[in-house]
């Protein structure tokens, strides 16, 4: 009993801060979704009747799924190499992971523009090498948005995966090999399952983070790849359809909780986030 009380004491400061400074003001805003333009669920009906809103949500979902899958695979490889690298190589890799974090998301987006546009460095290099005749459309579409987003998300995926892999007991793996399992078997049967909590944690983090992504799609999408955050932004800043904007935001929050719930049925969330 005492243990439970002390646990809640540890939680209290964060809960208080987030509750008062985050949820209170947020709740007041989300309430707008059933208040404006008139009280009722009219805004939510748009989810089923408005083709543009459905289209925006689908585009967002598609880009987020691609981004999360690509990020997870690449981040897993990096974290794996990182875990097994010698200290010097490890430091160097860490440098590569951490350095991009110091570039403002705005600067990064424009760096990608310089690299990927029609007459950008990548296309010019490829044409120079004779690999292609016509410049590839790498920018101002979903490809460009995905490249930019994967780049942003990679450190977010690598760091938790690495933290999870570091803690895998090397002796377990050695035992597996010692008992005659091949390297592949050991990886698939022992290492992968042990790293799974990290994978799910990182995947969830990357996915929900991508859902609300705003600046990168706005700059790299050529104005046409409209993701949900940008749509909401326009509703709030320009067209003043606050009811619609907050309705979509509420829907996102509900989606995330549904996702967490579904995950908790598939895997034990307790193994996912701490505890046993």
């Amino acid at each position: 009993m005492n243990d439970r009380r002390s646990a809640w004491l540890l939680i209290a400061p964060a809960l208080l801060l987030v509750g008062v400074v985050y949820f209170l003001p947020l709740a007041r805003v989300l309430a707008i979704s059933v208040m404006e333009p008139e009280p009722g669920l009219g805004n939510y009906a748009l989810l089923f009747t408005s083709a543009p809103i459905q289209r925006v949500l689908l585009t967002t979902l598609r880009i987020c799924v691609f981004t999360t899958s690509i990020t997870l695979v690449l981040a897993y490889v990096v974290a794996y190499v990182l875990t097994h690298a010698r200290p010097t190589a490890q430091r160097l890799m860490m440098l590569g992971v951490l350095l991009p974090l110091w570039m403002s998301v705005l600067v990064r987006a424009f760096a990608w523009v310089t690299l990927l546009r029609r007459q950008g460095l990548v296309n010019n290099a490829l044409i120079g090498m004779g690999a292609i005749d016509e410049p590839l459309a790498l920018m101002w579409n979903e490809i460009g948005v995905t490249i930019g987003m994967v780049h942003y998300m990679l450190p977010l995926g690598i760091l938790p995966l690495w933290a999870a892999m570091r803690d895998i007991d090397g002796r377990v793996l050695a035992a597996s090999r010692g008992l005659g399992a091949s390297a592949t078997q050991t990886f698939v049967r022992v290492f992968l399952p042990l790293s799974l909590p990290g994978v799910i944690g990182a995947g969830l983090l990357v996915f929900i983070f991508s859902l609300g992504f705003f600046i990168t799609p706005a700059i790299l999408g050529g104005g046409k790849t409209i993701m949900v955050a940008e749509y909401i932004n326009v509703q709030i800043h320009e067209s003043l359809r606050w009811g619609v904007g907050t309705m979509i935001a509420s829907t996102l929050v509900a989606t995330i909780f549904a996702l967490m719930f579904a995950l908790s049925r598939l895997v034990d969330l307790r193994t996912l986030f701490g505890a046993k």
Binding site: I11, F23, L205, A229, M260, F273
Partner: peptide, 28 residues
Amino acid sequence: GCWRLSSRAGEAVRAMMLVPIVVPTIVY
């Protein structure tokens, strides 16, 4: 704290803590 609790309540708190990441910042 959540880890020590290792209960439904702890999970709920952790899930709640994720909300600020997912809600589009403009709304907040």
